[in-house]
């Protein structure tokens, strides 16, 4: 059987052949795309591997020159002198923990209170206005907060605390806390909103006030999500760089005095990379050891957050 198309003749066999040719191109695309997409998906895994290996290798070089015992136990961080230098990470860790603690004192109560207001008290309309404003706060670049801490918050605090240094732990800590409020608020609010209304209505029906519902019913039911949001907030504060680099100073001293200039893990990396520490010096390798410390700390916090929200989640 043959069909005529102008002066060419088509047999069914030709048509099948042509169709197959077209299909095989299509089949090739169908075969290729998942593999290409898998390739893009592995980039994220490669990134993690890349981070781990660069940190590991360079940290290893660092520990060939400086003993790991000194790194972990010495309380002096004096990296600039090749001969008499001392590499004890403790001052950087205390600097980091100090600013993080101050930030949490601000971010946790205010963030949680905002979350309770948004989830339990606010009308739908109020929530629609307030939430985006909080998100704006989270979207402001950290260098802007650093500028704000150095040029506004520190002078303001100096009026209250006269012996406060130009660089100190208090001001960047407070500003960092403000920056983290939206994160705590929105994650905690998510956790509280996922508590079903029937439970609230049960408590209200028994005569509770809204406050009692919020504090005695919703909060306990949302504990896992709220705790996870705290962990993520801590991790964020520990890894925050520009605010502490601009307003925290660069004095690695082992102190818990919030009025003095300090240096955090992140600020040290900034100090070394903006200066001209030559490639291959011990100082150069020290930023990887410090980066490794930072990475492990934030990773632990993130994993803990994931564990808490998975393990202790209440299912309704």
């Amino acid at each position: 059987m043959a069909m005529t198309d102008g002066n060419r003749s088509y047999s069914v066999r030709d048509m099948i052949k042509e169709n197959k040719k077209k299909q095989s191109g299509q089949q090739f695309v169908e075969w290729l795309m998942p593999k290409l997409l898998l390739l893009t998906a592995t980039i994220s895994v490669l990134t993690t591997i890349g981070i781990l290996f660069t940190l590991l290798f360079e940290t290893f070089v660092f520990f060939e020159r400086v003993s790991i015992v000194e790194f972990l136990t010495s309380k002096e961080w004096l990296p600039w002198d090749e001969k008499t230098g001392s590499f004890g990470v403790a001052p950087l860790v205390t600097g980091t923990l100090l600013t993080t603690a101050i930030a949490m004192v601000v971010a946790i109560p205010i963030g949680l209170a905002s979350a309770i207001y948004l989830s339990e008290y606010a009308s739908e309309k109020a929530r629609k206005i307030l939430k985006p404003i909080l998100e704006v706060l989270a979207g402001i670049p950290t260098i802007v907060y650093g500028f704000f801490a150095l040029t506004f918050v520190t002078p303001l605090l100096q009026k209250i605390i006269p012996n406060l240094g130009i660089f100190n732990a208090l001001s960047p800590g407070l500003v960092m806390g403000i920056m983290i409020i939206p994160m705590v608020a929105s994650l905690s609010e998510d956790a509280m909103s996922s508590v079903p209304n029937s439970i609230r209505e049960g408590a209200l029906g028994l005569g509770s006030t809204k406050l009692e519902v919020a504090l005695k019913v919703v909060l306990p039911a949302a504990t896992s999500g709220i705790a996870a949001s705290f962990m993520l907030a801590i991790s964020r504060a520990v890894g925050e760089t520009m605010i502490v680099a601009v307003a925290g100073g660069s004095s690695p001293v082992f102190t818990f005095d919030v009025t003095k200039s300090i240096q955090t893990l992140t600020a040290y990396i900034v100090q070394v990379t903006t200066g001209d520490a030559g490639y291959g010096t011990t100082v150069y390798y020290s930023i990887y050891a410090v980066g490794m410390t930072l990475f492990l700390f934030t990773l632990a916090m993130n994993l803990l957050a994931q564990y808490i929200s998975r393990r202790f989640r209440e299912e309704y």
């Binding site: 890349g50 981070i51 964020r236 890894g239 760089t241 990396i269 900034v270 990887y288 980066g291």
Partner: peptide
């Protein structure tokens, strides 16, 4: 959750 400065080191 990895701090941005660590990406800088990478």
């Amino acid at each position: 959750g990895v701090p941005s400065i660590v990406f800088g080191l990478l």
